[in-house]
């Protein structure tokens, strides 16, 4: 075809990945001018919603919330909340506690361990991924403190943003239509104001991870991780049955050791339980519960970024 560059799929892919030579880069740019289909393909490839793809990526539970060399931002957030709750503590002891329990590692505090200090002080916390600004509003309405993990470079426009990753814990103090007030351990001022848009971009990097610090048991709203988009291959589906059966046996042996025996009707006073029978003899309704637990465990392992493979 006259005056039309033909661009292979691989050349366009290499161009978008920044792997082309000068000459090939110019060739692709020229072709984009004349080839409507190529333009559409490039637009589609670039516009596949990264946020949506993020929902399928592993959760960053093992990533470190760490801002500076001391790596103690999450410890400082928890100390801030202890202080607000009127609980006395010694900062050095708090750090020792976090180090001794390996919550604070040399690289920082993994996201899933933020809140352990508060739990140690018998303050109840819950965790949620893919939370929204409405979850923060809801928690603040009940005087629950909220710790979120953000990409600190995105929080403050103008800072060089080298890496897309959750790397910093902050406490959300207040939220109104356009602004969020934060306690940011890395800033001098006690209250830092940021634009909600910047906050949302920074928060998205942790898959909108928040730790809600409860006031009373009534505030507890279970928030299991959404695992609906984790697809399992056939071999993992078969694994589900093996895990379910074993989980039942683990439960049964524990009960038997505690003196429980089979009874047609559950009777806690006399330690009788109708499910103290082999898994194969369980009614389908009971098996379904074990299967669901097994399935969600496998899904969670995958969601946390681990692979399960057979030797």
């Amino acid at each position: 075809m006259a005056n039309k560059e033909y661009i292979s799929d691989e050349l366009l892919a290499a161009f978008l990945a920044g792997n082309t030579s000068k000459s090939d880069t110019l060739k692709v740019l020229k072709a984009l001018k004349t080839d409507k289909t190529l333009r559409e393909v490039a637009e589609i490839a670039l516009s596949v919603d990264e946020e949506e793809l993020n929902r399928f990526k592993p959760l960053p539970a093992m990533e470190m919330a760490a801002e500076n060399a001391k790596n103690i931002c999450s410890v400082m957030c928890e100390a801030f909340i202890l202080h607000r709750r009127g609980i006395n503590f010694d900062e050095n002891e708090l750090l020792d506690l976090a180090k001794k329990n390996n919550w604070l590692k040399p690289e920082g505090v993994p996201l899933h361990l933020i809140g352990q200090i508060l739990a140690h002080y018998e303050i109840m916390i819950t965790r949620k991924y893919y939370a929204g600004i409405e979850d923060i509003r809801h928690a603040l309405m009940y005087d629950n403190e909220v710790i979120v993990v953000v990409d600190s470079d995105k929080l403050y426009p103008g800072r060089e943003d080298l890496e897309d990753e959750p790397n910093h814990a902050v406490v959300v103090i207040k939220e109104d239509e356009n602004r969020v007030t934060l306690y940011d351990p890395s800033e001098q001022e006690p209250n830092v104001l940021v634009q909600t848009d910047d906050f949302m971009k920074a928060w998205a990097e942790s898959h909108n991870y928040m730790i809600r610090v409860l006031q009373t048991i009534d505030d507890y709203e279970p928030q299991p991780i959404d695992l609906g988009n984790i697809e399992l291959t056939d071999d993992l589906l078969e694994l589900r049955e093996a895990i379910a059966e074993n989980a039942h046996d683990v439960w049964a042996i524990k009960r038997k050791q505690e003196g429980w025996t089979y009874g047609e009707v559950r009777d806690d006073a006399h330690k009788k339980h109708p499910d103290l029978i082999p898994y194969s003899a369980l009614p389908d309704s009971e098996k379904e519960y074990d299967r669901l637990m097994a399935m969600d465990t496998i899904r969670l392992v995958k969601k946390l970024g681990f692979n399960i493979s057979k030797d």
């Binding site: 290499a14 978008l16 990945a17 289909t37």
Partner: peptide, 23 residues
């Protein structure tokens, strides 16, 4: 087989799939 590893496989597939489905 035409894929020559000039970029990540997933990037190549992004383009191939976009092109294929448009077609």
């Amino acid at each position: 087989r035409s894929f020559k590893f000039q970029c990540e496989l997933i990037w190549w597939l992004r383009i191939v799939a976009s092109h294929f489905f448009v077609a």
